[in-house]
Amino acid sequence: MGAGDPFGMPVSHALASGMGGIRTAGDLVARMQLHRKMRLPEAKRYVADRLKVAQSDLSDEVAMRELREELDLGVVTSMVGGAKALAAKARIGRLLDVRVPSVEILKQKIGVS
């Protein structure tokens, strides 16, 4: 985005046009852009297919909150026992079939392939 006070800049953009991060499926779509150079329509299509939902559901807070909990991908609200941090990323990587570098390092350290 760019520089600016948190309310004026990231929060304003998040409200106006942001996907919603872990509140929805924003982080998953971002991963496809980052790791596979996918442009937005392709990235959304890919993630929707993997999640078996309509593309319009990807930024639906209610639909994605339920689905993230069901698939244990990490949710925005604090939830006892749910996948967090590296565990959530490992599950996201497997779901999307992408290598998450920090997860790969963890696997190496604990001897899991």
Partner: peptide, 20 residues
């Protein structure tokens, strides 16, 4: 304030805001 049509949301990448 205004917003995009639902379904047209985009990915936000953040640069430098960690210090903001």
């Amino acid at each position: 304030i205004v917003g995009v049509q639902p379904g047209n949301e985009v990915v936000l990448t953040d640069d430098g805001s960690v210090n903001a």
